[in-house]
């Protein structure tokens, strides 16, 4: 399993690894020749990418290019049909134990928040720790309150999602994902359903999260955020990963014509 890891990463604790420069860390997500079809339509075409522990990757590209599908294959909400996906050493197979392990590794934040409307913000956050990790209610609630404090809305704990603004809902959703203590956070356009003044409060939370060394894969078109926070950017087009590079390279010196025209469209 560790066959293709840099030597330096072997046998080190996770916090030690995060002290290393990116290129010496281990790969937490590995895609090798991954394909996926919806019927006869090829949504993902030969995806090869390695994401380092603690790396922040911003995925962007035109609508329908397969960004969401790519993200959803990382936690196996969608299954790939050819190629190999390894997440934190766990190979994606149909084995149900692997599936449980993967879901424990990853937290996901959706464009439409997808909070559970029949539960308070606090219960939204405590549900999974109590039911999956069998944490006692008291402990789960304390942890949830700490998370709500971290995303800046402890006073909203007793409210229902419908009583919260979009930005507050999305922050509860982030807290809910973090409550399972994932290694990797997946964001699928977390700000595109929000009004401009709320976008900032969500991006701030994500920025802080990145600073803690969380591995993050974000589909977003917030280019300011990408420029500032991303270690790497990845352009998807028609199911292919056309180009990856640091924000510096992507913005100033894109290799692909498609990257340049796409950036011209959205900037």
């Amino acid at each position: 399993m560790q066959d293709d890891q840099p030597a330096a990463a072997n046998g080190m604790s996770k916090s030690d690894i995060l002290q290393l420069p990116l290129e010496q860390r281990d790969d937490i997500i590995i895609y090798e020749g991954v394909h996926k079809w919806f019927g006869t339509f090829c949504v993902l075409r030969d995806i090869n990418v390695r994401i380092k522990r603690g790396e922040v990757v911003v995925v962007f590209g035109p609508s329908g290019s397969g960004k969401s599908t790519f993200l959803r294959t990382i936690n196996r909400l969608e299954q790939h049909q050819r190629g190999r996906i390894v997440v934190d050493g766990i190979e994606m197979t149909n084995d149900i134990r692997n599936l449980d392990a993967i879901r424990r590794e990853t937290g996901m934040v959706f464009q439409q928040f997808n909070l559970f409307p029949h539960m308070t913000a606090l219960s939204n956050i405590t549900l999974a720790p109590m039911r999956v990790r069998h944490m006692p209610r008291r402990e789960a609630e304390e942890a949830a309150m700490q998370l709500l404090e971290r995303v800046g809305i402890p006073e909203q704990a007793a409210k229902y999602p419908a009583e919260l603004s979009g930005g507050q809902q999305q922050r509860v959703a982030i807290a809910r994902a973090l409550a399972m203590q994932p290694q990797i956070m997946l964001f699928d356009e977390p700000t595109s359903a929000l009004d401009p003044e709320m976008i900032k409060e969500v991006l701030d939370v994500m920025r802080e999260l990145a600073a803690t060394g969380m591995t993050m894969v974000c589909v977003t078109h917030e280019m300011g955020f990408a420029r500032e926070v991303a270690d790497r950017m990845a352009l998807f087009d028609e199911g292919m990963l056309l180009e990856t590079g640091t924000p510096e390279q992507i913005f100033n010196n894109p290799q692909e014509e498609r990257t340049k025209t796409f950036l011209d469209q959205i900037l």
């Binding site: 936690n75 909400l77 449980d100 879901r103 424990r104 990853t106 937290g107 996901m108 959706f110 997808n114 909070l115 559970f116 549900l127 999974a128 039911r131 999956v132 809910r176 994902a177 399972m180």
Partner: peptide
Amino acid sequence: SQAGEALGL
């Protein structure tokens, strides 16, 4: 239900 699944339920 996807949100539930993604949480590991």
